[in-house]
């Protein structure tokens, strides 16, 4: 079946199978920042934005995205790099494999929450798992980032 989606501001028409998941469809489009980390939709690695909302692409059938805006970190390069510098300054990325999904969620949080308290930040990001860092450095990076760029 054919779907038309707007990926990172560019409209494309794609041939997909009814049981294709968005994570695979996007990787086939060369968007390698989108990754599968589990089989059960609980690690957050595959997070993308669907119409601006953080969404698990491993649990979204590709045809469901028909007519919608998809944003991956490739489409937010400048903003993502801005936050990445705060991560790097803390050394908080370690292996980096979970970073794209995590950063997309952080950037969505910045749009959604006004002056979030520490507990709000932790709650918002609970679905983005990381096995390397123990989360502390990520939290330091987020606080500094939000402090520098208030919403």
């Amino acid at each position: 079946m054919q779907i038309t989606v707007i990926i990172n501001h560019r409209q494309v028409t794609l041939d997909v199978q009814p049981n294709d998941f968005l994570v695979d469809t996007l990787r086939q489009q060369g968007l390698y920042s989108v990754r599968r980390g589990c089989d059960t939709s609980c690690c957050g690695l595959c997070t993308i934005w669907l119409n601006g909302k953080p969404t698990l692409s491993c649990a979204t059938l590709s045809f469901r995205a028909n007519g919608k805006h998809i944003t991956t970190i490739e489409g937010l390069r400048h903003e993502a790099e801005g936050f990445a510098h705060f991560m790097a300054a803390e050394g908080a990325e370690q292996c980096g494999y979970c970073s794209p999904g995590f950063i997309l969620t952080v950037l969505a949080m910045k749009r959604e929450l006004v002056n979030p308290a520490e507990a709000d930040i932790i709650h918002y990001l609970t679905g983005n798992m990381c096995r390397c860092t123990g989360y502390q450095g990520q939290l330091r990076a987020i606080k500094k980032y939000l402090g520098v760029t208030p919403v």
Partner: peptide, 13 residues
């Protein structure tokens, strides 16, 4: 900072 920090944060292949 790690030399690969920005690349791996921003999803480079």
């Amino acid at each position: 900072p790690k030399t690969d920090a920005i690349a791996i944060c921003t999803g480079k292949p």
